[in-house]
Design a protein around this nucleic acid. Sequence first.
DNA 1: CTTGTAACTGAACGAACGTTCGGTTATCTT
DNA 2: AAGATAACCGAACGTTCGTTCAGTTACAAG
Lengths: 195, 195
Amino acid sequence: MPRKIDLSEKLTQLRSFNQQEGRAPSYSEMAELFGYASKAAVVAPVQKLIKLGYLQRSSNGRIAFTSKITSQISILGTVQAGFPSPAEEELLDTMSLDEFLVARPEATYLLTVSGDSMIDAGIHPGDLVLVEKGGVPRQQDIIIAQVDGEWTMKYFGKDKTGVYLDPANPSYTRIRPKSSLSVGGIVRAVIRKYK
Amino acid sequence: MPRKIDLSEKLTQLRSFNQQEGRAPSYSEMAELFGYASKAAVVAPVQKLIKLGYLQRSSNGRIAFTSKITSQISILGTVQAGFPSPAEEELLDTMSLDEFLVARPEATYLLTVSGDSMIDAGIHPGDLVLVEKGGVPRQQDIIIAQVDGEWTMKYFGKDKTGVYLDPANPSYTRIRPKSSLSVGGIVRAVIRKYK
DNA sequence: CTTGTAACTGAACGAACGTTCGGTTATCTT
DNA sequence: AAGATAACCGAACGTTCGTTCAGTTACAAG
């Protein structure tokens, strides 16, 4: 068997470089990073990493990272499955929360929740909601709306009578906007950060 | 008054370039991007953007983005405050969810929640939890633990008798691990994604 | 040991890089 | 109209870039 290239070690080194420099290394920098004496030696590993989707060629022929390297969160299974052993860990895929949660970055905003009107939907005061502007809300979407001058977060609904807003809290009642309903955005995700 | 450089437009262009290429543009690319005929013209705006913290110089003298450009989410106020007018919008700061939620990327994992034992804490089945390995849990932290062979998510507690685990659901009861308690990690954030 | 194969080296090449600087243009003030 | 100031251009420079290739080294198989 011929010698084998250790790619997982190189991935670690590339991630470390990215954290320090905020960019992808050049070929000569990779040579130094990987411990080669010649930058021609990194051509082969780079092509493999491109094929595996960790690197990509930019329009000027230079190397750029894909989200597989810049992402930081390892994806695991369920809570019940628990944590894998250190041996399995190296094979895990990573992802970026930004890319995962945000489809249209230019139209997505972060709001802090105040009030408990959506508490039965698991949205508590102090939670953060990712809101996407400009979409058309569907039945049962949670939306941020300006109804009769006030901004609120509610379930969106629509029937023969017209548009209505439902809270997720029995203490509140359904709202049917008297004058106009202005939809600020659709809640795409809820985020709660501890401590 | 001398002519004024429009920086906010350049920021938009740089963000767009970053999304397409996954890297920072060179000086000549910036000249084309900004509409200059000479790359010498971009030296001044670049220095201003560095001073403002949007760009940084890398170790090889090249330009790299800071998180102020690579981040994608605009930060707003509370739900009640609603959305700002487009005029105010340009002044908004952006942030990265990854950086905001994850302190130690190499030790942070994403798990899917199964079971309803933490439902009163607003953690539903199907939600995602960001778990950080290796820390020491404090009173009332939510942790992922392996107790008597099974992985669960519970509130962590400690008293004279020893360590105990509390669910956030009246249908379940406090657990005092018989043999050993292995702490897999501490839950740092809960994420719920819609649709 | 000999052979085959893959990894690696070192040097060379044109292209693109960041930097510098004298000269030109545009805009505001007086 | 004249002057001041900052923005911008175009060309030049040494450096680094990615790419290529003939030659060398390391290792497994026979």
